[in-house]
Amino acid sequence: MAFFGKIIAKVSMIIEKTFYNQPKLESEEMIKVEFLGPIARPAIELDVSDLRELSTMLKEDETIAPWLSKCAVALNDAMISELDTPLKDGDRVTILPPVCGG
């Protein structure tokens, strides 16, 4: 019986490796979006592939949308000016509202 038990364990291991550990066909581009200063919103994670797509999604959020026209954007802490900037998994986008140091 122990022999059959071993075979069953082996077969289930092969099944698991074959069917469950396949890499995902569609890669998910999860990026983190942080809102600074007075926007006062916790960070969110989104599945978007570029800034254009991010813009579309943020415009649908009624508390974020009014901020967008006056906010600058940083990607992984570098300021950016191109809407066609591609985003990859693990990227961090930061939304920076109007500033007043000093």
Partner: peptide
């Protein structure tokens, strides 16, 4: 850097004295 007035212990964003950074409005 974001500035707030403190009045009666409350923090109020100094919106009218703040300036949009270079490149602002990219996602608008």
């Amino acid at each position: 850097i974001w500035k707030y007035d403190v009045k009666d212990g409350q923090r109020i964003y100094a919106e009218d004295r703040s300036t949009a950074m270079d490149g602002a409005g990219l996602l608008a």
